Amino acid sequence: MRIFDAFVDAYGSAPEGVWHAPGRVNLIGEHTDYNDGLVLPFAVPWGVTIAASPRQDDTIRLLSLQMGAQTVEHLDEAHGWARYPVGVFWALRGNGLPVRGADLVIDGDIPEGAGLSSSAALEVATAFALNDLYALAQSPMDLARTAQRAENDFAGMPCGIMDQATSALAREGHALLLDCRTLGSRQIPFDLPAHGLELLIINTNVKHALADGQYARRRQECEAAAAHLGVPALRDVTDLAGALGRLSGAERRRTQHVVTENHRVEALIGLLRAGAVTEIGALLNASHLSLRDQFEVSCPELDVAVESAVRGGARGARMTGGGFGGSAIALVAVERAESVRNSVKAAYAERGWRDPDFLTATPAAGARRLT
């Protein structure tokens, strides 16, 4: 194992263990997580692997096979990518848990910039490693919440719980229905090959610079809309027409998306339970239109990916993730997959854009110890 050898080379001894946490793709339920809503993601086959051993002091030594090395004597010394794993140490210590330092080697194979949540995978892998190294007896959901706190309060990204929970809880062959208010979850069978289908991830290979600031702004707009409506979160809006009549501008549009997106999650679950997997494409299309027009987090590259995938024969498609770049997903009959790829590539070439990359996503297992 490459990471095992790298650990021995870096630190002169074998690691105490090796852990893996996957990235995720969200089937439907976008920007609903921080509105206490419903999401339906699943883990992807790519993720972050960490080899680790505990230390007798508080020093954290990090070696990423992709990003280089950092040594952190004091938590506020961490910078760049290291703030994600170091934030987990900070969050665990802040919860009063007996976590000292560690030596870590990190290896990842999540495609960069694809919006498949490499940061959550890094946080969750770190959390699972420290949980075992220091015998913390934390549940997978406890570790997911710790990882979210690390990203929110240490790394400074105001994400919801979806990414970390999926990485921690996912089950192979299933999508994860997560209620982001109660943190209750159910594993939903999602066997596309049995229906002659596959889920194609279309990585646009772009990430627009405004993404992070706009993400925070969308969250603020949702919170302001909920405050104006007198509800704890937009998840609590039951009379959409009445709510829209009391709002205007961005707050009105954000509310319309969040409320209807929660309904789409429930509708898609109903189709999956009925065995009507081939019929979910229309809900993917509707989700994308809402994200484009009401939540305004799409971009030309995502729109063209979605439109050309459907034109090429996809049953449905939508952007996935935070937006402003990253990836789209397309539900495709296996025999039409090549046609869909060719349609998207031709649309990109016509505009002089860099070729997109394509990945076929199958629901993978969540975080676990490998050795």
Rank of each mutant, 00 (worst) to 15 (best):
A225K: 01
G115V: 12
L268Q: 05
H257I: 02
S290A: 07
V44D: 08
I201H: 02
P54E: 13
V105K: 06
E77S: 12
R246G: 00
R83M: 08
G213L: 02
G113I: 02
A226D: 00
H31M: 03
P85W: 09
V258N: 00
T278C: 14
P232Y: 00
D103G: 11
R93A: 10
S64Y: 08
L169P: 08
A337F: 12
H195N: 13
L75N: 13
R292L: 05
I201S: 00
P22I: 04
W46L: 15
A102K: 04
D76H: 10
D303S: 06
A317L: 12
K345M: 14
R341F: 06
A6K: 12
G249Y: 01
S117V: 10
V304H: 09
L178R: 03
A347M: 00
D33F: 09
A241D: 15
T59F: 10
L178P: 03
G326A: 05
F89D: 06
H208S: 10
F324D: 11
D239T: 00
D5F: 10
H195W: 10
A241R: 13
Y11H: 04
R100G: 10
P111H: 07
I188K: 12
G270L: 07
D236M: 00
E30K: 07
G160T: 03
V304L: 08
L133S: 07
S248I: 10
G29A: 05
A91N: 01
G352M: 08
A125K: 01
G213M: 06
A170F: 05
E16L: 15
L197A: 01
D355T: 11
F154N: 10
E198T: 11
C222G: 05
P85Q: 07
C222Y: 00
L197T: 00
P85S: 09
D107E: 15
A121V: 09
D132Q: 14
S53L: 08
M157C: 15
L75F: 10
E123Y: 03
L289I: 13
H20W: 15
R354T: 11
E151L: 05
G196F: 02
T71R: 15
A309K: 12
P54V: 13
C222N: 03
L27Y: 07
W90T: 12
V88F: 01
G313T: 14
T371K: 14
F7L: 04
A243D: 02
G108T: 13
E151P: 04
S139R: 08
E112Q: 14
G326V: 08
T71V: 15
N203H: 13
M157R: 11
V25E: 01
P232A: 04
I161S: 06
E73H: 15
A78G: 05
V340I: 00
S327V: 11
S298P: 09
R186C: 11
A14I: 06
V277K: 04
A6H: 11
A314I: 11
G80Q: 04
A91C: 06
R219K: 08
Q187G: 12
R351W: 10
I106F: 01
S167W: 08
P356I: 06
L192H: 07
W353C: 02
A317D: 11
V72S: 02
A250G: 09
M141K: 13
A225E: 00
R145V: 13
G275S: 05
S290T: 04
V105R: 02
A43L: 09
T204Y: 05
L27E: 05
P45K: 04
